[in-house]
Nucleic acid binder design. Structure first.
Lengths: 333, 333
DNA sequence: ACGCTTTACGTAAACGTTTACGTTGAATGA
DNA sequence: TCATTCAACGTAAACGTTTACGTAAAGCGT
């Protein structure tokens, strides 16, 4: 149905090689033929077939993105960064998500391999050994965003969760808080959970504050886990003046539950979140939070990846700086 | 580098045809050859090349998704629905966004055409004539999600914004509100803006309430436009008891500004949003809003599309039901 | 034993490009 | 004038599959 370069060649009375040259602006033809070929191409409604092109060029100009299936605004920003950057470089992105807690990761990797993506970005998924093996054996350049592994051959780009959590808690301490809770982190998540808890505990210790395990409520970064944590705090009648949350959404859960119980933020309780996602400035009061530069992370990760693809260089793992965004959810005592 | 079926054929001592048959489970070989081929394939680390496959099959098992570049949680849910459904049917999704207010739409369409996607989903983008022409001339089945055009040949799936807005305002009226403002909608947006405003005005009229144009604050569905609207209402000293917002984020903007000015929700002002996006239940108080079933919209739209692709049938435009999700941001007078 | 069907393959063309290499004719230089 | 260069093409192979078609052998019924 669709016209091919053969059709153009026939109609224009030239060879397919010349058509290809004209279409790709490679030179080696005179103006007349160029015009004729272009005219015929337009007349036939020619549209090049990237698949055929990919086949002979052994490169698809495509990058794959694999992400978890949870929808937080978190991923939207990263994706946007990735897509913007890849678009600027003439790449397309093919997207898949890896199921809840990465259950579909192997299928996803396989799919990306079969599609022959030129590069691969994996966002925020904790990779088990089998997955890492599958990933590396694909022999496709890749970068991990907002996650990492304990192996050296898996380059990543992420913020230092430990340091970021430490900074957040230190900020609370600097505002004279001494009884500080923690909520929303999953201690079994070695990527984003444990380091944030560790940053929290270490900051306390370094300032001579005893860590009270009852003040740490585990969760899964969700709004609901924030709500649950706050309810638990209330049951415990925990004497906190502040709570550090492992995500903005969990912080919102805390605030929401406080609202229901007439606890004022930050008058009665100070809250700091994590992510600086879109909800953080829409909350009441606006949330003080640790910023991960999501959009830029997407852009930069994608950029590094494309560099690696095009120049066959290795990607260096990199820690990107966090930043404390002070809004109005923390009170100085 | 990577092994091909030719390599397998050579090593296993069979023809490429047989390899292809085994790999695709087409039958026509005995158990021995099957085992041998599979063994060799595994040994060589064979991975099929979807590109080559697509070339001869004239189908890429791929669907393209084009969306605006704004990141609201809105799109996350739709995408997830699309990706889930397409995954279940063995399709991959290739994603691009069309730039702010669709500026990149023509490039996006062209890209999708060159990639030979089997189907195309366009989310929430207002299409101008040139774009519609480009779209239809692609000759690829497509469906519009949460948008539409004034032409009959562009099937869509969306909620009836007019009816949904009407229902929301009627709900406020049923709760004895009589002075009701409207915020966040762009009257120049014929898809999502104008119909919501129209639903609002018509509901008022139908219940004998005069429409006061000063009570309608235009916006762009954003949090900021909600804030701006509320500030404007305050300057006007508008005597409203309720306000209907064209988006949840705009509603949050209203609420946020009210909070700053000590105006209680819903005690002093009732608010209803639109979308039932994730932020709606995280707000304080939880937001009463008109639900668009985003995830399901993604799923169903994708499903219809794949039906059309596989059975070469036409897609019928469809209006999907909205629903009023009552939470706690409206007070009965 | 004969014809027929079935099974299990192999052969080779086709998909739509790119590209190394060859060819032609004209222009150039001495 | 003749060798050389160069611009402007054309030829054909290659990319990795799928698949229509052919074929040889085996099985089967009578």
């Amino acid at each position: 149905m669709a016209a091919t370069i053969k059709d153009i060649a026939r109609v224009a009375g030239v060879s397919t090689a010349t058509v290809s040259r004209v279409i790709n602006n490679l030179g080696g033809y005179n103006e007349e033929t160029e015009k004729k070929v272009n005219a015929v191409a337009k007349a036939l409604g020619y549209r090049k077939n990237e698949n055929a092109r990919s086949l002979v060029q052994k490169s698809t100009n495509t990058i794959g993105v694999i992400m978890p299936d949870v929808t937080t605004s978190f991923y939207g920003d990263i994706i946007r960064g990735i897509e913007d950057m890849s678009y600027e470089h003439g790449y397309s992105v093919i997207l898949t998500h890896a199921g809840s807690s990465g259950s579909r990761i192997l299928e996803s990797l396989n799919l990306m391999g079969e599609r022959r993506v030129d590069g691969l970005i994996i966002v925020s998924i904790e990779l088990h050994d089998a997955a890492i093996d599958a990933l590396t054996s694909l022999d496709i350049p890749f970068i991990l965003l907002s996650t990492m592994t304990n192996r050296a051959d898996t380059p990543y780009l992420k913020v230092d969760d430990y340091a970021a959590a430490y900074a957040a808690v230190e900020y609370l301490i600097a505002n004279n808080h001494r009884v500080i809770g923690m909520a929303g982190a999953n201690p079994n998540d070695p990527i984003s959970g444990a380091p944030r808890i560790l940053g929290y505990t270490q900051a306390l210790r370094d300032h001579g504050i005893k860590v009270d395990l009852n003040l740490i409520k585990a969760g899964d970064f969700s709004f609901e886990s924030g709500q649950a944590a706050m309810k638990s705090f209330l049951e415990d009648q925990a004497p906190m003046t502040a709570v550090f949350c492992a995500s903005d959404e969990a912080a919102l859960g805390i605030i929401s539950t406080c609202f229901e119980h007439g606890i004022g933020i930050p008058t009665d309780l100070s809250v700091v979140g994590y992510d600086n996602s879109k909800v953080s400035y829409m909350s009441i009061p606006p949330l003080t939070t640790v910023a991960q530069p999501l959009y830029d992370m997407g852009r930069e990760g994608c950029s590094e990846l494309m560099d690696a693809v095009q120049h066959k260089i290795k990607i260096e793992s990199k820690v990107i700086p966090h930043e404390l965004v002070v809004r109005k959810s923390v009170r100085s005592l």
